[in-house]
């Protein structure tokens, strides 16, 4: 009797494991119910993987802007941006390596996509260099 119960329990578990409850997006990431969509932290690293920020980045979630002042002498062509996003959100375009931020007149725009993939908020990254 015990054997039967165990067999049934295992089969049920296996079936439950196969059941597809949540859809995934084109990146294979889970699409959830969360509609929150914002950047909570922003970091900028140099080629030596040390921060180049001069003070914390100012993130305006209403205006959807990120203002960051970088240290004097920063190599703007080779920077690694790091975004911290709200739970389940993702970034578009993806950051795959070094990013060239040297064109200060044309700031980079990154779009945050919410967990339910229905809300998209573009954030503009404004960089200023510490004056001397």
């Amino acid at each position: 009797m015990k054997t039967y119960i165990i067999t049934i329990a295992v089969s049920l578990l296996a079936l439950a494991g196969c059941k597809k409850d949540y859809p995934v997006d084109e990146d294979g990431l889970l699409i959830t119910t969360r509609a929150e969509c914002y950047v909570s932290n922003f970091e900028l690293l140099g080629t030596d993987f040390v921060t180049v920020r001069n003070g914390a980045a100012v993130i305006d979630t209403v205006a959807q802007t990120i203002n960051v002042e970088v240290l004097y002498g920063t190599d703007l062509k080779n920077l690694y941006p790091q975004f911290t996003l709200v739970t389940d959100a993702k970034l578009d375009p993806k950051i795959t390596g070094k990013v060239d931020f040297s064109d200060l007149d044309h700031p980079k725009i990154y779009t945050v996509v919410s967990g339910n993939r229905k809300v998209r908020k573009p954030y503009t990254v404004y960089i200023t260099v510490q004056p001397r």
Partner: peptide, 13 residues
Amino acid sequence: NAPDFAINLKAEA
């Protein structure tokens, strides 16, 4: 794409 200067170098860098 590298620049032609590097400032604020430290020991062991």
